[in-house]
Every structure is written in structure tokens, then in C-alpha cells.
Design a binder for these strands. Structure first.
Lengths: 210, 210
DNA sequence: TAGATTGTTAATCGATTAACAATC
DNA sequence: TAGATTGTTAATCGATTAACAATC
């Protein structure tokens, strides 16, 4: 089965919304209700849920817990995935803290930096190693994905090392397009670009009445 | 003219790549060269550049400085845009530091939080006010866009206040779909979702030969 | 001129949307 | 049954890709 990136993204959002609904005691939802919360159409929601093998009933809609379980089974896979972070600057530290215990089945198990003030220490519950040791630690700890928060001109080199050691997915914060083998999935988060985009569209409506 | 979001995103990336080329002394580029760096096709690059009114010549391609100027004129508009940040936690502080002096024409001029330890202080060069004062400060400082790094259950309320005060663009880090008027542009950055996406696709290729 | 690139138009592809029979 | 929702198929829409004449 071929699931689009957008569907994966929406499934992740559905899950976090469903968890809230569950904690509010809601046990069934209709596709249009979930769609309203997720900013999607009812048809979209049904298509996405069909992709993970969920079925609803015309009478009661979809079972909330059933959806949470099915999406979890689909997204999380049979076992957890270990994640590394390279580049323990401001952003890197914030991201380690952000993910600590937040996303089930995904834990940042190792951090890497070249700054000797940081290496050898435990930063927000995550041990920090020198970048030289990336390859060894990634193999030893069976790390499958990485978060890249290094400067743009170091990103390509670090990424290649990570891939050589076995990493198959990278969340890349460096404002550069990584050139990697096709079996490596890269998600770019260029925050400068994102803010420029927001600013561009904000300007279209800003100051129109004042 | 109707410019797609993707084109805006690519233009921002082109610009940062072009700035590097300029500092390396390159004065002309062909569409396929820029495309290679940006992960886009030559045709895509030409279409994007045409949208901002750039012309190239078959002989020399596009002038690097000309492109930087044209894209800047298009993206940045005639004057800068003031930006606010709400939610001065780990991520918020990292983002303030990240943007400090980084993106020309976009400055984070005010931060907001409810924690009395933070309000009244200057955090990474940016004054922090209590959230009560969002409406007043946003109006006074003529703020047009905002970065939202508050918990999910506060995001909708804060966003509505920001919009009431005149904000027309929001970079939203809360894992929730904001419901706002159509004249407000919202860009969502759900980091939990992004890492789950990376993990999902990483798993497809992880452990295939180990 | 010859060759590579640009700018433009037509074809393709994928996802979203709309329409409708099946179901509880 | 009647009504609202589900699951499926066809139509639409937009962006990407391919093809080609114009240009230096």
C-alpha cells in the first residue's frame, strides 16, 4: 500500500486530537467531527482512516480508542525507534527538552556536539558525545533516525556520516537541501523560510485598515 | 498575480543559496545549477523566477545579484515587519535566539509569557511582557506577525487575541489546527508530527540489512 | 552558425472534491 | 422505514513535467 506523506501527517494529528477526546470521555466520533478539529474534510478523514484499516459504522461513526490503537499500530510499528540529535546549540537543547517523554515510542537517546563544554555531560537527560563518535554510538544504540541542528555548512557531512552508520530518516533544521541516497527520508524544517512565508502572506492583509 | 505557497518557500531557499554563491564570487547561474542546489527542476526554477519578474539570458543564465535583489523586493516588501513571540519556554527562547539578527527585515520585537519570572526581563535581547499586554503592545509596536509557542490548550485563545490586535500571520508550533478568519495566514510546525513522519519513513528502510 | 539555455504551451500526474449506492 | 453516515467511484483542480520554438 502506498500512503502519501500528507496522510501520514494527518494521521499523526488525528491521533493527538483523539487522545484529547478520549481523555474527555468521548468514545465515538464521526468523520466530519474529527475533520473539523483537524482542518480536513470528512471524506479526507475517511480515506485516511481506511488507509490504516479502520472501519466506522454509519450509526456511531468511529470508535475513538479503536482509532488511537490502529493509528498507533500503523505509525509506531512493532517496536520503538531510537533517535539521535546532532548539534546541541540553543535549538538543539530546546528540541531535546521538547521531545523528552513527549512522543511515545520515539526517544532521543544520544546527542552530539563538538563543543568540549557539552560533550561528556548529560543535557536534559540525554548524554552528549563528541561528533567523532557518531558512527560508533549510532551503531551500538541501534539508532534509526536523527535530528540535525548543526550549521548549514556542516549539515551535508554530518548527514552522510549518519547514513553510513545506519540512519534512514533525518529531521533537518539546516537551511540546505541534503543530497542523500533515495532510501533515506529527509524532512526539512527551515525556520527562516517558514517565518518569511508567514511574513509574506501577513503583509498581504496587514495595514489594510489602519 | 497568484503565487503558490510552494513558490514562496522555494524563493526563500533560492535566496539563501544565492547569497552563498554571491559570497563565493559567483555572478551568474543557470536554472539547472540553482535547481540542483535547491532540489528543484530547472523548469521549476525558471517558473518561480519568472513569477518575481526575473529574466535570464540563454547565454549567461541569471545574474546572481539581480536575483537576490528581485527576490528580496518580492519577499520582503517595501518595509520590515515586526514579529511577536508568545510562550517563552525552552522552544520559545531558542527561537528568539535563532532569529536574532538572522532574517533581515524580520525582527522579533516583543515576547510574552505568563510566568512572572520571565516578564519584565529582557530575554536574548527581546523584552518579555505579561500576556495580558499582548493587545496593547502589538498595536503600539505595529506588529504584523507572531510566533506561537504556547501549550496546545492556550493556543486558540492567544491566537484570537493576536488577530484582534492586528496580527495577520502566525507561525504556530502548537499541535492544533487554529480556527481563524481567512485573512489570517497560519503556518503550522508540529514538531511531534514531523518526527513521527521521519520515524515512519525511516522504519521502511531501517534494519533491512542488519 | 551551432549549441545550450530561456520562456511558453500542452500533457501528465496526484490529490482533492463531488456524487452516489450501501449500510446501520 | 427514514435519515445520516460510511465506503466507493467518477470528476475536478492544481502543480509538475515534458515538448518545443525563440534567443543569445
Amino acid at each position: 500500500m502506498d500512503i502519501s506523506e500528507k496522510t501520514i501527517a494527518r494521521l499523526s494529528l488525528y491521533r493527538s486530537l483523539l487522545k484529547r477526546l478520549a481523555s474527555d470521555g468521548v468514545d465515538h466520533v464521526y468523520s466530519h467531527e474529527l475533520g473539523k478539529l483537524a482542518g480536513a474534510t470528512a471524506a479526507q478523514v475517511r480515506r485516511d482512516l481506511m488507509a490504516v484499516g479502520c472501519e466506522g459504522s454509519p450509526k456511531r461513526g468511529y470508535g475513538v480508542q479503536d482509532l488511537i490503537d490502529s493509528i498507533g499500530e500503523f505509525l509506531d510499528g512493532p517496536e520503538g525507534l531510537n533517535v539521535a540529535l546532532v548539534g546541541v546549540g540553543n535549538l538543539g537543547q530546546a528540541i531535546i527538552a521538547f521531545f523528552a517523554g513527549r512522543v511515545a515510542n520515539l526517544s532521543v537517546v544520544a546527542a552530539f556536539d563538538n563543543d568540549p563544554y557539552k560533550t561528556g555531560r548529560v543535557i536534559r537527560g540525554c548524554r552528549c558525545y563528541p561528533i567523532d563518535e557518531v558512527e560508533r554510538i549510532v551503531r551500538e544504540q541501534h539508532i534509526g533516525a536523527a535530528i540535525l541542528t548543526v550549521p548549514a555548512d556542516e549539515a551535508q557531512g554530518v548527514a552522510e556520516t549518519l547514513v553510513r552508520a545506519g540512519v534512514r530518516g533525518i529531521l533537518n533544521f539546516a537551511p540546505i537541501k541534503l543530497r542523500l541516497p533515495p532510501y533515506v527520508y529527509v524532512e526539512d524544517v527551515d525556520m527562516g523560510m517558514l517565518l518569511e512565508k508567514v511574513a509574506y502572506f501577513a503583509r498581504q492583509h496587514f495595514d489594510q485598515e489602519g
